[in-house]
Amino acid sequence: MSLYHLETLLWIDRLGTFSAAAERLNTTQPAVSARMRELEQRLGTRLFRRDGRTMSLTAAGRKLVRDCDPLLRDMQIALLGSGGFAEASGVVRIGAGEIAAASCLPAFVADLKADMPNVGLEIEIDLTANLIQQLLTGRTDIAFAAGPIAHPALKTQPIGEVALMWLASPEVAAAFTAGEAQLPVWSLASHSPIHGRMRDAIEASRIAQESLNLCNNARTMIDIAKAGGGVGIFPEPMARAEVAAGALVELSDMPALASVAFHVAMRVSDSEPVLARIFDRASQLSLSASR
Rank of each mutant, 00 (worst) to 15 (best):
L3S: 03
Y4K: 10
E7Q: 14
L10F: 07
L10H: 04
D13K: 13
R14Y: 03
G16H: 03
T17E: 10
T17I: 03
F18W: 03
A22K: 02
E23A: 11
T27R: 00
T28V: 01
T28P: 02
A31F: 00
A34D: 06
A34Y: 01
R35D: 04
R35T: 05
R35K: 15
M36T: 06
M36R: 03
R37S: 09
Q41K: 07
Q41L: 06
L43C: 05
L43V: 04
T45C: 14
L47A: 06
L47S: 04
R49V: 14
R50T: 12
G52E: 08
G52F: 08
M55Y: 12
T58F: 02
A60R: 09
A60F: 10
A60I: 03
D69Q: 08
L71C: 02
Q76P: 00
Q76S: 06
A78D: 11
L80C: 07
G81K: 03
G84I: 07
F85C: 00
E87G: 06
A88I: 02
A88Q: 03
V92Y: 04
G95V: 13
A96W: 02
G97F: 08
A101V: 07
S103V: 03
S103C: 07
A107C: 00
A110F: 05
L112I: 08
V119F: 10
G120E: 11
I123G: 06
E124V: 12
I125A: 05
N130E: 09
I132F: 06
I132A: 07
Q133S: 11
Q133N: 06
L135W: 08
L135S: 14
T140S: 15
F144S: 05
A146V: 04
I149N: 01
H151N: 15
P152A: 15
P152F: 07
T156F: 08
I159F: 06
E161S: 14
E161N: 14
A163P: 07
A163G: 05
M165A: 13
W166K: 11
W166M: 11
S169V: 05
E171C: 00
E171S: 14
V172P: 05
A174D: 13
A175P: 00
A175I: 00
A178G: 07
G179C: 10
A181R: 14
A181M: 07
L183W: 11
V185G: 01
S187A: 15
A189Q: 10
H191G: 01
S192P: 00
P193R: 10
G196R: 15
R197G: 08
R197S: 09
R199L: 12
A201S: 12
E203D: 13
A204K: 13
A208G: 13
Q209N: 06
T220I: 10
M221K: 05
G232K: 01
F234V: 15
P235E: 06
E236R: 12
E236D: 11
M238H: 03
A244L: 10
A247K: 07
L248K: 02
E250T: 12
S252T: 14
S252V: 10
M254Y: 09
L257R: 02
A258H: 11
A261S: 15
H263D: 10
M266E: 05
R267L: 15
S271R: 11
P273K: 08
R277H: 15
F279W: 03
D280T: 14
R281K: 08
S286T: 12
R291E: 14
R291S: 13
